[in-house]
């Protein structure tokens, strides 16, 4: 039986291309926008900006710590640096540099992290960071954003260029359905209720928002009406939207391409436990590293796809 999806797509594209296109547009809008990359310009889709604004783009070579420091310096000088590399090297490898020179020093640096999560695929666990959201959200002053498709990533990239303060922007490698509108307004810190429901809320972020959309249709076939909320901003978290939804549905699922420890689900649990203790089931990686495989295979094996969201929703419902 085919699914009656509330959101559909005609095209797939990688979210990193949304970043690259948004970055170019931000550069055209504001001459203070500058770019840096640690030998991954092609992978990060930063080449068009580099070509158009060579004097505002800095190749750092394979030296991420230095790139973060230079970004802080450029920000001191009034520039708006977008520093791009893989999410693994943009966080764990340079945590202390981000902590001291960017977050504690409150510098207007945009850390742009591609190839996050399991959907990086075949490169395997060395590159599949699943701890980055946790590390970044723990840092005071840091805004953490994880958009869901090409259009939302592009909109988010334009939004962070206008936002004053350090930002971690996470996106990915795989070709992914484009199911959100091209003309969307991206409001940092404002959750987006994509589908209304009454029985259970699915809070999803990044690539798993699409899986949540699919899961909603699957649940509906069984007479369960799920609400789907796109949490593109992990920090600051839209607690009001979370509480309002759970007040109505009475239970929830969090879905993210990240460790359960320290991820979006953890943040939602903190919110619920303080204001409205309600059943919450986690869809995320359970204290393990990833491995090589295709994105689809990996989401299945590690329990992150739509089927797993459906199961989690039923578990949450049973606990109401």
């Amino acid at each position: 039986m085919s699914l009656d999806l509330k959101f559909t797509f005609t095209e797939k594209k990688d979210t990193r291309s949304g970043f690259g296109d948004g970055f170019l547009e931000a550069g055209r809008k504001n001459p203070n926008v500058v770019g840096l990359c640690a030998d991954l310009i092609g992978s990060l889709k930063m080449g068009d900006f580099q070509k158009e604004f060579p004097e505002r783009f800095f190749q750092t070579g394979i030296a991420e710590a230095n790139m973060i420091g230079i970004s802080a310096g450029l920000a001191i000088g009034g520039k708006i640096p977008f520093a791009g590399t893989f999410a693994n090297f943009a966080t764990g490898r340079v945590y202390d540099q981000i902590r001291q020179s960017v977050a504690y020093s409150d510098k207007n640096v945009k850390i742009c992290a591609s190839h996050a999560g399991l959907t990086l695929g075949e490169d395997g666990a060395t590159h599949q960071i699943l701890e980055d959201l946790g590390m970044m959200k723990m840092l005071p002053h840091m805004t953490v954003i994880n958009p869901c498709d090409y259009n939302q990533t592009k909109a988010a990239t334009l939004a962070i260029a206008e936002h004053e303060g350090p930002v971690y922007l996470r996106f990915g490698r795989p070709s992914w359905p484009i199911f959100t509108p091209a003309d969307q307004k991206f409001e940092i810190g404002k959750a987006w209720k994509m589908i209304d429901g009454k029985d259970v809320t699915i809070f999803a972020t990044g690539h798993l928002v699409w899986e949540a959309v699919v899961a909603e249709a699957m649940l509906r076939q069984e007479g369960i009406h799920a609400e789907v909320i796109n949490i593109h901003t992990i920090k600051p978290l839209d607690e009001e939207a979370i509480l309002e939804s759970v007040k109505k549905t009475g239970c929830a699922v969090s879905a993210e391409e990240h460790q359960i420890n320290g991820g979006l689900g953890d943040s939602i649990a903190q919110t619920l436990i303080r204001h409205n203790p309600a059943p919450l089931e986690y869809v995320g990686v359970n204290d393990s590293f990833g491995e090589s495989g295709t994105p689809t295979q990996l989401l299945e094996k590690y329990g992150l796809n739509a089927e797993n969201i459906v199961k989690a929703a039923k578990r949450a419902l049973a606990r109401k």
Partner: peptide, 25 residues
């Protein structure tokens, strides 16, 4: 004071960024 320091080895990178911002300007 324009940036925090204490965890060593970071200042030269920051100074380079400031120097390059000056060049752009």
């Amino acid at each position: 004071i324009r940036v925090a320091s204490g965890s060593l080895g970071q200042g030269l990178s920051v100074a380079l960024g400031v120097a390059q911002a000056k060049k752009i300007d």
